[in-house]
């Protein structure tokens, strides 16, 4: 019974995103623009580009995710659907997890799939691109999960923007550090399993610890 509600929320959010594409396209377009403008600005120094590639791509992915987060609960809050969801006979944390998963499918997954196309501009080799994709695949859901807590806290405020950044971005730093360190290590010829394992540990932590406070924060925002 709970699983059916879980699936229903994911399907609904995906359907809504495809009916209302502009929000979906916004963050992806931002990612593509930032990542493809950098080489034009820096110049054709391939050694330098290769060196900054992990940082630039990851910072762009991080900010793109951050920009898209505001929509996570906003429309449901404004049209009353959030009340409907909170008053369903299912654990709110489960429903929240479904919404976060849908958000990741609409941002993290496309970013991971587009990244290898853009990485070519930075002269990354295929093996490095594989590590980049792996870090994005593990790292972007962490970004969505952490962001959800802060979004839930600020959904009742009319202008949560700056406070939101202050709340979220410090927690994004570990993900950024381990993800870029993994790619740097690969480029330098070292094993990457340590950094990848750290990312996986962060993902496990975020998966188990994020939905519950998000649910509590949503209830607080509504009351």
């Amino acid at each position: 019974m709970h699983l059916r509600a879980f699936g229903a929320v994911i399907v609904r959010d995906l359907l809504l995103a495809f009916r209302h594409k502009s929000e979906l396209v916004n963050s992806i377009a931002f990612f593509i623009l930032v990542v493809s403008l950098f080489p034009l600005g820096v110049g054709a120094d391939i050694a330098l580009l290769r060196k900054i590639a992990p940082g630039v791509i990851w910072v762009a992915a991080l900010l793109a995710t951050f920009l898209s987060l505001d929509q996570l609960f906003r429309s449901d809050y404004e049209d009353g659907c959030l009340e409907l969801i909170l008053m369903s006979p299912h654990p709110v944390s489960l429903i929240v997890l479904a919404k976060i998963m849908a958000h990741w499918m609409l941002t993290g997954v496309p970013l991971t799939l587009i990244a290898p196309l853009l990485a070519g501009m930075y002269g990354l080799e295929n093996s490095s691109i594989a590590v980049l994709m792996l870090t994005l695949l593990i790292g972007t859901p962490i970004l969505s999960l952490i962001g959800a807590i802060a979004i839930a806290l600020t959904v009742g405020l009319r202008k949560g923007g700056v406070m939101l950044a202050l709340l979220i971005l410090p927690f994004y730093v570990p993900v950024l550090i381990f993800a870029t360190a993994a790619i740097d290590a690969q480029i330098a010829g070292f094993p990457v399993s340590g950094q990848i394992n750290m990312l996986l540990a962060l993902l496990a932590l975020a998966l188990t610890l994020s939905p519950w406070p998000t649910a509590v924060a949503l209830k607080m925002s509504l009351s």
Binding site: R12, L15, L16, R19, H20, S75, E78, D79, G80, C81, E83, L84, M87, S88, P89, H90, P91
Partner: peptide, 20 residues
């Protein structure tokens, strides 16, 4: 949750998704 199996609330907002 057991209460929510028995109770339906309709507030000022319709909880209608315009894009569905």
């Amino acid at each position: 949750d057991a209460y929510y199996q028995q109770m339906a609330y309709l507030g000022h907002l319709n909880a209608v998704k315009y894009d569905l």
